[in-house]
Design a protein around this nucleic acid. Structure first.
Lengths: 92, 92
DNA sequence: TGCTTAATTATAGATTTAGTTAATTAACTA
DNA sequence: TAGTTAATTAACTAAATCTATAATTAAGCA
């Protein structure tokens, strides 16, 4: 659902999480350490990102490892490209 | 500001407005007629879209005509393409 | 088993957002 | 000028969102 994705992307914390995962897969704890926000709050953000299919998670023993799911970005790309082909567009 | 843009895109009504403007420039009233929402509410949505630089407006006599501003979509495109080039990505 | 660490779920508070109606601004027209 | 139409701004309410703390689940280890 495109709405879930845009909602997920509308929060700066969640976009930063995606930026982090762009570099490498990370555990929930490691992600949380990058923010001045409680772990439960980060966990909630991760849940939203997962619901939007922007990330996936896998338990590794005691840890849960999150990784970027690139498929949805393709959808997003398509959505934006619709607009590029709209009018006689050649911005700047 | 990328945050303003994503916030603006996070609402379905605003995305539909963009879809409408993709076809042609429209007055505030014509836009409002496409929704079961009051005109003041649509006016607020248009203000947000304008703040995000996704649309621009121009008074034409009694009417105010809104049109798509494609420049910001390029920014958005860049943001997404960052992710495409992340890992060894070849989704599906 | 009992203790510790990692992470989530539950619950609640504060802020933000989307919508409403009422009032206001601006332009046209008889 | 008075009245009408188009759109916005103002003030308010209801719902959603973000964050926190407390409680719970799950895994590892002495």
């Amino acid at each position: 659902m495109v709405n879930t994705v845009f909602k997920a992307l509308s929060d700066p914390t969640r976009r930063t999480i995606l930026d982090l995962l762009r570099e490498q897969d990370m555990t929930a704890g490691d992600i949380a350490d990058h923010f001045d926000i409680s772990k439960p709050s980060i966990s909630q953000h991760l849940t939203l990102l997962k619901q939007a299919d922007l990330v996936s998670s896998k338990r590794d023993g005691q840890h849960i490892v999150y990784s970027l799911n690139l498929t949805v970005f393709n959808e997003l790309l398509k959505w934006i490209l619709q607009f590029q082909s709209s009018k006689g567009s050649e911005p700047q």
